[in-house]
Design a protein around this nucleic acid. Structure first.
Length: 588
RNA sequence: CGGGGUGUAGCGCAGCUUGGUUAGCGCGCCACGUUCGGGACGUGGAGGUCGGAGGUUCGAAUCCUCUCACCCCGACCA
């Protein structure tokens, strides 16, 4: 039983000024967490109870699925991460530090290397596989900008699992089992989620899906098809490319277009020009081919220019681009870059002189919509001039295509051609088929039945544990406070005394509290003295325990009020029945 | 990384423009009394390196420089 008279808790009457998102605001105000460092939080008793409930549900589902728990240090040496290339590829988000002897260490963001090495140390036969092991561990990422409280910290707790299989079929099966375990975990946690196709990003590997909680505060954007169920992170969306056209287009010609360095100004110019008027209607931004110059910066510091051609009505989506060019980081072209590559005329870049085979040798990739036979208005590589009718395949040949154009609401679904919708979400789980990247780099092999060495294939599977607490809060609250699902709530019953001090309410409440406690019901008992009923009600609503029990004026008639925090529904229950009534409610 | 904003008691804020008693208010906290079903009331208290460092000045919360932290926006278009 938790007695509020002695509980280490202080609720705040006002919102903390630095908290923006509801989960952060309410978790601080209701006394669950306190900020302790940039991107780091202290769990107070109530918060830690919720955290442990969440952790235990995750652990329970992992164990049920037959995965085994281990525990690694968070502080790790550089060498294994050097061997897989992640020491450099992970970039500035990796927490690096040195010990007193000047040796490099890191605070692990994930543990692929260590799990791989551990299995290599202990196992060497196909008979040992398949194997799935996991840990629940504090992870570190040196986020440029921690924000939104627990949702994106620099220190957070993650459950990460790794599967080890002899072949691709085994990997698919391990992946499927993790996917099932994640579904039952998130269902039990009462977390809303959408499973979307994802990019594997810095982890490497092939197939990968994310579990996204669809919330506006999320920092991921995903699309969903309105008809076929296709869902994908925008980073992973592949554009439905039209079929190449073989129709003959008019020859390309250069026209003077003074003062048209932007797509808007160009389109306006085209529509003012009588000479360029089109029988089929007005010019649109989608008729233009926009060429965006970017500088790719590789982890080793080398830089190489890249020009991306895409329909003028779309912007380059930097997140999508990063997912394509990683580990290189794309940077916008600076004035110095333009000075260094004088053939790129800012505002008038055209594909005629681009491509690795061209004089400029600048790599030129286009959006998949720019297929052979499509005709464009685009830059003429000279200030104040554009080319009309420049046709892909005939007048220019890009080095390839790239998925970097922004995805727009209503874009066609790549699997069924219906329209797609866009929403925001926050990643609560991610499952990957890693393949052999880590096993190869760290030489994890086993003997197969024929006595041959075979490289093991791996999967990796993560759940943000501390983030899950925040996401549950984010999706389970109202204007009065938190509304915990019972599975993760810090208590089942919040028991309030609402009567005259020294009246019969206190002893009745005391008795109910003890009986509930004896029946195994988790009770948060507001036994504070000298606290007005209003404060007790407000605190109960803020703290968000699912069932609120009020011992108050009804006691004279032998009645106790039982209130559901989520629905607000209240009913009076006879004093001698209230305990068994509550047991019925609370035992799931 | 860039732009903007904010740092004054546990929380929310005023004071700063125009330097000058002992730095204020509300909430919370402590004591006593009253009150007791919706963040009660009275009286009396405790609590501050004014984010930090340096400077200007007879004198700095206030002016200047640097720095740290937090919040928001942008990460970008040709």
């Amino acid at each position: 039983m938790l007695r509020m008279s002695t509980l280490f808790l202080r609720t705040l009457r006002e919102d903390p000024s630095d908290a923006e998102v509801p989960s952060h605001r309410l978790l601080v105000r209701a006394g669950y967490v306190r900020r302790a460092a940039p991107g780091g939080f202290t769990w107070l008793p109530l918060g830690w109870l919720v955290y442990r409930n969440v952790e235990n549900i995750i652990r329970d589902e992992m164990d049920k699925a037959g995965f085994q728990e281990v525990h690694f240090p968070a502080l790790l040496p550089r060498e294994p991460y050097e061997a897989t290339g992640r020491w450099t590829e992970y970039g500035p988000n990796l927490f690096r530090l040195k010990d007193r002897r000047d040796n490099d260490f890191l605070l692990a963001p994930t543990h692929e290397e260590m799990f791989t090495l551990l299995v290599r140390d202990l196992f060497s036969s196909y008979k040992d596989l398949p194997l799935s092991i996991y840990q629940i561990q504090t992870k570190y990422r040196d986020e440029a900008r921690p924000r939104a409280g627990l949702l994106r910290g620099r220190e957070f707790v993650m459950k990460d699992s790794y599967s080890f299989d002899l072949n691709d079929d085994g990997l698919r099966e391990s992946y499927r089992r993790h996917r099932e375990a994640y579904i039952s975990t998130f269902d039990r946690l009462r977390l809303p989620y959408v499973i979307v196709s994802a990019m594997s990003g810095a982890m490497g590997g092939s197939a990968s899906e994310e579990f996204l909680a669809p919330l506006d505060v999320g920092e991921d954007t995903f699309v969903r098809c309105t008809s076929c169920g296709y869902a994908a992170n925008t980073e992973a969306v592949s554009v439905a490319a039209p079929a190449p056209s073989t129709a003959t287009t008019p020859p390309a010609r250069v026209v003077d277009t003074p003062g048209t360095p932007t797509i808007d100004s160009l389109v306006a110019f085209l529509n003012r020009s009588e000479e360029l008027a089109r029988p089929e209607g007005t010019w649109d931004a989608a008729d233009t081919l926009k060429n965006v110059a970017l500088m790719l910066v590789y982890p080793d510091g080398t830089r190489s220019p890249l020009v991306i051609g895409l329909p003028g009505n779309r912007e380059v989506d930097m997140k999508r681009l990063e997912a394509q060019v990683g580990p290189a980081e794309p940077m916008p072209f600076t004035e110095e870059d333009f000075a260094r590559f004088p053939m790129l005329v800012k505002g008038y870049i055209g594909p005629q002189m681009l491509g690795e085979q061209s004089a400029s040798q600048i790599r030129y990739l286009v959006d998949p919509r720019v297929v052979d036979g499509t005709s464009w208005v685009t830059g003429a590589n000279s200030a104040g001039a554009h080319v009309v009718g420049l046709t892909a395949g005939r007048d220019f040949t890009p080095d390839g295509t790239i998925e970097a154009a922004e995805v727009l609401e209503g874009d066609t679904c790549p699997s069924c051609s219906a329209a797609m919708t866009i929403a925001r979400g926050i990643e609560i789980g991610h499952i990957f088929q890693l393949g052999r990247k880590y096993a190869e780099a760290l030489d994890l092999q086993v003997l197969d039945g024929d006595g041959k060495q075979v490289t093991v294939t791996m999967g990796s599977y993560g759940i943000g544990v501390s983030r899950a607490v925040a996401v549950i809060a984010e999706s389970h609250h109202d204007e009065l406070g938190l509304v915990w699902p019972r599975e993760v709530a810090p208590a089942d019953v919040h028991l309030i005394i609402a009567g005259k001090e020294g009246g019969p309410q206190r002893s009745a409440a005391e008795q109910i509290a003890v009986e509930l406690d004896n029946r195994g019901i988790r009770v948060l008992f507001d036994d504070r003295e000298g606290v007005s009923p209003g404060v007790r009600f407000k605190d109960a609503e803020l703290i968000g325990v699912p069932t609120i029990v009020v011992v108050g004026r009804g006691l004279d008639d032998g009645l106790i009020e039982v209130k559901d925090r989520a629905t607000g529904e209240r009913r009076d229950v006879a004093l001698n029945e209230v305990v068994s009534h509550l047991v019925d409610i609370c035992v799931l």
